[in-house]
């Protein structure tokens, strides 16, 4: 089974798919650390909807869908950032309104685009095997920037994830970090429309971080475990999809779910908490 797999890696589309798969896993799973620890899954959803709507509009207008998706993401970030600073408004409601609005726009665009629906459907589910060189390059650049950001500002990021207000009180440029994160969320989501698509990406924005949350109290390990589980899910998902001839996006997401379930069941953190509870009762 191994030999044909290695053989197949000599074909350029497969090579691209393999590289994109690792990049997709790495970028989404690093981002998922923020999504999970800052408790902002709704921001993740809204961003992926924004990217999707932007990409559909871009296809309508004949613009590169990554670019238009990214621009709409930035607009959404511009709305979401200040919104999350306000305390007198429940941001959940606004986010709900925002992302259903974006979904409406996307479907409107899809209605108009009846003839090229296949291309638009790819934006929803992604297609690792039909990636262009441009898609992979963009994804590589975005992943590189994200990795650099996490490595360079690790201590500031830890402080901001811990508590935004305390970080600001201690002179950490909290807003800069937060807006950079929103910006990077937009970039990661829109560059991954081509790989796993606007619907499935949400799973990869939550599951790797949620997996790490089951396993460690160390922030550095948290990033590493998250990245490993994301890349692992993407790589094994791709292989499974190739072997059994399944849609790649779906098999990646399902693999990620299986990894999370395993982490949840075997979580040493949960086991310790359970032990404590039992001792307390005795």
């Amino acid at each position: 089974m191994i030999d044909p797999l290695i053989d197949i890696l000599t074909y350029p589309p497969i090579q691209r798919a393999a590289i994109a798969c690792v990049l997709c896993g790495a970028s989404c799973s690093l981002l998922s650390v923020f999504v999970v620890l800052m408790k902002m899954p709704l921001i993740g959803v809204s961003m992926s909807h924004a990217a999707f709507a932007g990409a559909v509009l871009g296809t309508l207008a004949g613009i590169n869908p990554f670019l238009s998706g990214f621009v709409v993401c930035l607009l959404a970030a511009g709305v979401l950032g200040p919104l999350s600073d306000r305390t007198d408004l429940a941001p959940e409601n606004m986010l709900g309104i925002l992302f259903s609005f974006l979904m409406g726009i996307a479907f409107l665009g899809m209605g108009i685009l009846t003839r090229t629906k296949a291309g638009v459907l790819n934006l929803m589910w992604g297609s690792l095997l039909t990636l262009s060189r441009f898609d992979v390059t963009i994804l590589a650049v975005v992943t590189g920037v994200l990795v650099l950001f996490v490595a360079v500002f690790f201590k500031e990021i830890r402080a901001v994830l811990f508590n935004r207000r305390l970080a600001r009180a201690s002179g950490v440029p909290e807003r800069m970090i937060y807006y950079a994160l929103l910006f990077l969320t937009g970039a990661v989501v829109s560059s991954n429309l081509a790989t796993v698509g606007g619907l499935l990406i949400f799973a990869l924005l939550v599951q790797p971080g949620a997996t790490a949350l089951q396993l460690t109290y160390d922030m550095k390990h948290f990033f590493l475990i998250s990245a490993a589980s994301g890349v692992g899910a993407c790589a094994s998902g791709l292989v499974i999809s190739y072997i059994f001839d399944l849609p790649s996006g779906a098999s990646v997401v399902l693999t990620a779910t299986v990894i999370f379930a395993a982490a949840y069941v075997f979580s040493p953190k949960r086991r310790r908490a359970r032990l404590k509870e039992r001792n307390r009762i005795i």
Binding site: L37, K155, E156, R158, A159, F162, N163, R165, L166, A167, S170, G171, V172, A212, L213, Q214, T216, Y217, D218, M219, H221, F222, K269, A273
Partner: peptide, 22 residues
């Protein structure tokens, strides 16, 4: 300030965040 029981930060690391701006 709320902190999740499983949030990955130890007490000493939380103390250290006070010195980050400095």
């Amino acid at each position: 300030f709320p902190v999740d029981p499983s949030f990955p930060i130890l007490a000493v690391e939380a103390v250290m965040t006070g010195a980050i701006g400095r």
